[in-house]
Amino acid sequence: MMLVRYLSQIGRYFLMLKEIFKKPTKWSVMRSLIFKEVDDLIIDSLGIVAFISFFVGGVVSIQTALNLTNPLIPKYLIGFATRQSVILEFAPTFISIIMAGKMGSFITSSIGTMRVTEQIDALEVMGVNSLNYLVFPKLIALLLYPFVIGISMFLGILGGWMAAVYGGFASADEFVNGLQVEFIPFHIAYAFIKTFVFALILATIPSFHGYYMKGGALEVGKASTVAFVWTSVVIILVNYILTQLLLTK
């Protein structure tokens, strides 16, 4: 019974994706909606992403340094480990999970509130495709999400460099040398392919939970929590699948 319910929800989710692209909203209106979503979802997230990335990068660097107890292991490994951790996993995946909480709950609660206050019914009665009006601008705005992750990568490594150098764990040259050792450019492509897919997940799963919620204010809160859980679960699963597909031979 539960399986049937999950399958029906998944089917409904894909039908929703189809609806988003039907009957597009007038471009002049859509343009201003996209700018608003860029501001709400991308610009407003930069502060927290910068803060978390910088300090987590620092922590990765320190922990790596503290685990290098064997004097034969070169210090440049601190830079190497920080680069690999930040670029491959921390920035694309863990920032996306944090964003599932921040952006995702914002998306679910704003759409859910529109549902309970009949604003979505008002759009439908007027003849507006409410899914296109509400979700499409979010999808377009989140095409800028890879820039957020790019900033996260840069600040994570900067944080690691500062912690290593100013903490006395490695010299600047050693850390930078580590950043360059065995650098595989495809890892950057892999990270951004993941990021792009996560952006689509971040825009649509919380929208789904907000759009189809029923009830009142309490249910809006519950829907936000459920949306966060499912967005995180899907990000983790997709992360595993993409890593298998893109990094294994």
Binding site: K36, T113, M114, T117, E118, Q119, A122, V125, M126, G127
Partner: peptide
């Protein structure tokens, strides 16, 4: 036809933003 319809909802349903 829907553009010929006006609707006043119970809770007004005004757009908050």
């Amino acid at each position: 036809l829907r553009t010929e319809i006006g609707m006043v909802f119970q809770g007004s349903a005004l757009f908050d933003s």
